[in-house]
Amino acid sequence: MGTYKLILNGKTLKGETTTEAVDAATAEKVFKQYANDNGVDGEWTYDDATKTFTVTE
């Protein structure tokens, strides 16, 4: 398990959240659902060194 971070750079929603997941693929699924639930759809990037996903609208 590891802690993964999501940085939201949406047009109307900005912020950060974290999740505990077994791997990056699992964290990505959780974060994409979170972003979708909050109406954020954009370009995704992932930094393996910091376990950080970023979505920018």
Rank of each mutant, 00 (worst) to 15 (best):
residue 1 M to G: 15
residue 2 G to K: 14
residue 2 G to L: 11
residue 2 G to D: 11
residue 3 T to M: 09
residue 3 T to A: 09
residue 3 T to S: 12
residue 4 Y to I: 01
residue 4 Y to L: 01
residue 4 Y to K: 00
residue 4 Y to W: 08
residue 5 K to M: 11
residue 5 K to A: 05
residue 6 L to K: 00
residue 6 L to Q: 00
residue 6 L to T: 01
residue 6 L to Y: 01
residue 7 I to C: 04
residue 7 I to E: 04
residue 7 I to W: 05
residue 8 L to Y: 13
residue 8 L to M: 14
residue 8 L to V: 13
residue 8 L to E: 02
residue 8 L to A: 04
residue 8 L to W: 11
residue 8 L to S: 03
residue 9 N to K: 15
residue 9 N to T: 15
residue 10 G to F: 14
residue 10 G to V: 15
residue 10 G to T: 09
residue 11 K to W: 12
residue 11 K to Q: 12
residue 11 K to I: 13
residue 12 T to E: 08
residue 12 T to M: 12
residue 13 L to F: 15
residue 13 L to N: 15
residue 13 L to R: 03
residue 13 L to Y: 14
residue 13 L to P: 03
residue 14 K to M: 15
residue 14 K to T: 13
residue 15 G to Y: 13
residue 15 G to P: 05
residue 15 G to S: 13
residue 15 G to I: 15
residue 16 E to H: 09
residue 16 E to S: 10
residue 16 E to K: 05
residue 16 E to D: 06
residue 16 E to V: 07
residue 17 T to D: 04
residue 17 T to G: 05
residue 17 T to H: 13
residue 17 T to C: 05
residue 18 T to W: 07
residue 18 T to C: 06
residue 18 T to K: 11
residue 18 T to P: 02
residue 18 T to H: 09
residue 19 T to V: 09
residue 20 E to D: 14
residue 20 E to M: 14
residue 21 A to S: 08
residue 21 A to Y: 03
residue 22 V to K: 15
residue 22 V to E: 08
residue 22 V to H: 14
residue 22 V to W: 14
residue 23 D to L: 04
residue 23 D to F: 03
residue 24 A to G: 05
residue 24 A to M: 11
residue 25 A to T: 09
residue 25 A to R: 13
residue 25 A to K: 15
residue 26 T to M: 08
residue 26 T to S: 15
residue 26 T to I: 06
residue 26 T to P: 02
residue 27 A to F: 00
residue 27 A to M: 01
residue 28 E to Y: 13
residue 28 E to N: 06
residue 29 K to W: 10
residue 29 K to Y: 12
residue 29 K to E: 11
residue 29 K to A: 14
residue 30 V to R: 08
residue 30 V to H: 14
residue 30 V to C: 05
residue 30 V to D: 06
residue 31 F to W: 02
residue 31 F to Q: 00
residue 31 F to G: 00
residue 31 F to K: 00
residue 31 F to R: 00
residue 32 K to G: 03
residue 32 K to W: 07
residue 32 K to Q: 11
residue 33 Q to F: 05
residue 33 Q to T: 07
residue 33 Q to P: 02
residue 33 Q to V: 13
residue 33 Q to H: 08
residue 34 Y to P: 00
residue 34 Y to V: 13
residue 35 A to S: 06
residue 35 A to C: 05
residue 36 N to Q: 13
residue 36 N to F: 12
residue 36 N to I: 14
residue 37 D to H: 14
residue 37 D to V: 11
residue 37 D to T: 08
residue 37 D to C: 05
residue 38 N to Y: 11
residue 39 G to H: 14
residue 39 G to W: 08
residue 39 G to P: 02
residue 39 G to M: 12
residue 39 G to C: 04
residue 39 G to A: 09
residue 40 V to A: 05
residue 40 V to D: 02
residue 40 V to M: 08
residue 41 D to E: 08
residue 41 D to H: 10
residue 41 D to Y: 10
residue 42 G to P: 01
residue 42 G to F: 03
residue 43 E to H: 08
residue 43 E to P: 07
residue 43 E to T: 12
residue 44 W to A: 01
residue 44 W to N: 00
residue 44 W to H: 01
residue 45 T to I: 06
residue 45 T to A: 14
residue 45 T to Q: 10
residue 45 T to S: 11
residue 46 Y to W: 04
residue 46 Y to L: 02
residue 46 Y to M: 02
residue 46 Y to A: 01
residue 46 Y to P: 00
residue 47 D to M: 06
residue 47 D to F: 06
residue 48 D to R: 09
residue 48 D to Q: 11
residue 48 D to M: 08
residue 48 D to V: 10
residue 49 A to D: 13
residue 50 T to M: 14
residue 50 T to N: 11
residue 50 T to Q: 10
residue 51 K to P: 00
residue 52 T to F: 03
residue 52 T to Q: 05
residue 52 T to D: 01
residue 52 T to K: 04
residue 52 T to S: 06
residue 53 F to N: 00
residue 53 F to L: 01
residue 53 F to M: 02
residue 54 T to W: 06
residue 54 T to E: 06
residue 54 T to D: 03
residue 54 T to M: 07
residue 55 V to S: 03
residue 55 V to Y: 02
residue 55 V to T: 03
residue 56 T to F: 10
residue 56 T to I: 09
residue 56 T to V: 12
residue 57 E to T: 04
residue 57 E to K: 03
